[in-house]
């Protein structure tokens, strides 16, 4: 790929709080589909996005059981991003801020997710063509 880029994304919002994270994941998905290498630094609440104990539930209001409801789980989306990266030969590095993980007790993460520090964010940003911060509001 002639125009392969390296991009860094910082996510900060916890799951199920707003649409910013979904927008960020869409951008990451698109970058991977185009074969670009991506580093994600999950900061603060965003470390829960990859928490492996997220569970689906039924929804009586919707009149659907667990299977029918197919409730969205960010951990599944992140796992799918790793699969997408493999398909297109892009590199996806997902780094959870270690201290943020400890604060929230969300140490169990889906495969591929690493623990890191702000130094890793800086290293990734230095090596990237650009960085996009999706901060909490």
């Amino acid at each position: 790929m002639a125009d392969k880029k390296k991009l860094t994304f910082v996510l900060m919002d916890a799951p199920y709080e707003n649409a910013r994270t979904v927008t960020g994941l869409r951008l990451i998905d698109l970058a991977l589909k185009r074969g670009h290498d991506v580093t994600v630094f999950a900061y603060e609440g965003a470390v829960s996005l990859a928490f492996s104990k997220q569970a689906k539930h039924a929804n009586a209001v919707h009149g659907r059981d667990v299977d029918q409801e197919d409730h969205p789980l960010p951990r599944e989306w992140i796992a799918a991003l790793f699969e997408q990266a493999q398909k297109t030969g892009a590199a996806l590095e997902w780094i959870n801020c270690g201290l943020c993980v400890d604060e929230r007790g969300v140490g169990e993460a889906v495969a591929g997710v690493k623990r890191g520090s702000p130094a890793d964010l800086w290293k990734a940003a230095e090596a990237s063509d650009n960085a996009l911060i999706i901060g909490a509001r």
Binding site: P118, A119, A136, R137
Partner: peptide, 27 residues
Amino acid sequence: ESAYRCTIEEQDDPVVWITHAMKGAGA
């Protein structure tokens, strides 16, 4: 721009904190 969003729980502002941390890493 967002101020005092979680400063009690975090004992600081997370962006100010990460600025300190990255500066320490040579940023």
